[in-house]
Design a protein around this nucleic acid. Structure first.
Length: 416
RNA sequence: CGGGGUGUCGUAUACCGGUAGUACGCAUGCUUUGGGAGCAUGUCGACUGGGUUCAAUUCCCAGCACCCCGACCA
């Protein structure tokens, strides 16, 4: 993409109404747009990031055999009444509205009940199970306090998946498979080294739920990490009994602040009881469906990456989700440089390499270089009089201090 | 929802009970080009509503918005 065509601009100034690093850098880079507290839009660069995160998650969910759907955000009161979730005293984060004829509606803050109701239409027999169903859908939550930029917002897209099983054994098997998929997802997103499977409170149906917590100074949660076993315990369940049960010693654990980037838990029959989701088994007996829930918020993942992967110049995206693999810069107002860079840009496009081409005229070299650091694509390729004299272009990893001169064709080979 | 803080051009800020200043941005022209260039000219502003006062952007009150801490987080 040509940067001259990008409608967004970067900003040198740090916005004064944002304290969090993720919001400051993402706003400065033109990744996001703030509508109001806890409500952000995603601009071309930011949308590319979100879509890449979504695609990684989608691939791993599909690998599980899960099926993607989209349920509506507008929800009927009747869907929520059986679980007592419509009551404002039970749920205080509702955004509710009305039809012209006064019929009450709600904007979904989660989709367990809606998903259960959906499955009632299709699940009758043991032959219809097990199933994994998921979606990427906007959730609306009337948070009393939005905070930390895009980390905790009132409107956000969530990947929520639900499993539907016949027996507890089957449920556990699916749950374990999903857990493994989550590990793969965070590895692929570049967060694997600092993300820990964390034992957290499990509610009434199981001892624990499992959170994926990314170690991060600005996180809301406190966890106790065992680096060696690659697991952690959330402070909310941390106790001598839990340590004993998990066969962990207090002295092998380190206290850390962290962000919950993923969460999986056992719903058991809470929703199938309330909404009567049942199936007939092999001998014709009516059985309750056992459910599990598996969530990831792509925007929170994006914010967590910004919080944990920056230097004083800007963002350093992991290559898997960088908005572009290469940021191509043409330095100096020189005809030969301009035409050579243009040539290189065309070759990169032909080789299907994602490239953001800073082809802007009349913009100083300093500004281009600083923009490249702020935006944070994985590789910076600079073409200038200097680089041409030296034999090509300069290739520099965003994460490295210095680059190297490399010939054009060599560059194409190296980055393909 | 409780507590604290802040509201000044598009952005970041300064000053002030009596004609609101700077920088960046933006526009035009010339010069410039390996780390947010230089000169010139131009453009753009006191959250809303009350009160005090001869006079309020400034002081007081309320509302609203935003940030932070706590509570909450299906």
């Amino acid at each position: 993409m040509r940067q001259s065509l990008l409608f967004t601009k970067t900003s040198k100034e740090t916005p004064k109404d944002e304290q969090s690093k993720n919001a400051q850098l993402l706003l400065r880079g033109g990744y996001i747009y703030k509508e109001m507290a806890g409500v952000y839009g995603f601009l071309p660069l930011g949308l590319r990031i979100i879509n890449k995160i979504i695609q990684v998650i989608r691939e791993e969910m599909n690998e599980l055999g899960a099926q993607e759907i989209v349920l509506p955000s507008l929800q009927a009161k009747e869907t929520w009444e059986p679980t007592n979730q419509w009551d404002d005293k039970a749920v205080d984060i509702w955004f509710k509205t009305k039809l012209k004829n006064e019929t009450e509606l709600g904007l979904a803050f989660t989709h367990e009940a809606a998903m259960t109701k959906l499955m009632k239409s299709f699940v009758q027999s043991y032959r219809d199970l097990p199933k994994f169903i998921y979606q990427f859908q906007t959730k609306f939550r009337n948070e009393t306090r939005a905070k930390s930029g895009i980390m905790r917002t009132r409107e956000f897209v969530m990947k929520d998946m639900y499993s539907f099983s016949r027996t507890n054994e089957e449920h556990v098997a699916l749950y374990e498979k999903a857990k493994e998929a989550y590990v793969k997802i965070f590895d692929r997103l570049g967060l694997g080294d600092i993300t820990f499977l964390t034992f957290a409170s499990g509610g009434v149906f199981s001892n624990y739920s499992h959170e994926f917590q990314t170690v991060c100074e600005t996180g809301e949660d406190t966890i106790y990490v065992c680096e060696e076993k690659k697991i952690a315990i959330n402070q909310e369940v941390y106790s001598p009994e839990v340590l004993k049960e998990l066969r962990l010693n207090q002295n092998e654990l380190v206290e850390k602040k962290s962000v919950e980037v993923g969460n999986i838990f056992n719903l058991s029959t809470r929703f199938s009881d309330a909404l009567d989701l049942t199936y007939l088994n092999e001998v014709g007996d009516k059985q309750k469906v056992i459910m599990g829930s598996y969530g990831i918020g792509p925007a929170r993942v994006m914010g967590t990456i910004v919080e944990t992967m920056t230097d004083e110049k800007g963002i350093v995206w992991p290559e898997a989700i960088a908005p572009f693999k290469i940021h191509l810069l043409s330095l100096g107002d020189n005809n030969e440089v301009t035409s050579k860079t243009e040539e290189l840009y065309q070759s990169l496009l032909k080789s299907n390499i994602e490239v953001l081409f800073d082809d802007r005229r009349g913009v100083s070299n300093g500004e281009k270089l600083n923009d490249a650091d702020l935006i944070g694509c994985s590789w910076r390729v600079v073409v200038s009089e200097k680089s041409l004299t030296a034999g090509g272009c300069e290739l520099k990893a965003r994460s490295k201090e210095n680059g190297e001169i490399i010939g054009f064709s060599e560059l194409l080979t190296k980055l393909s």
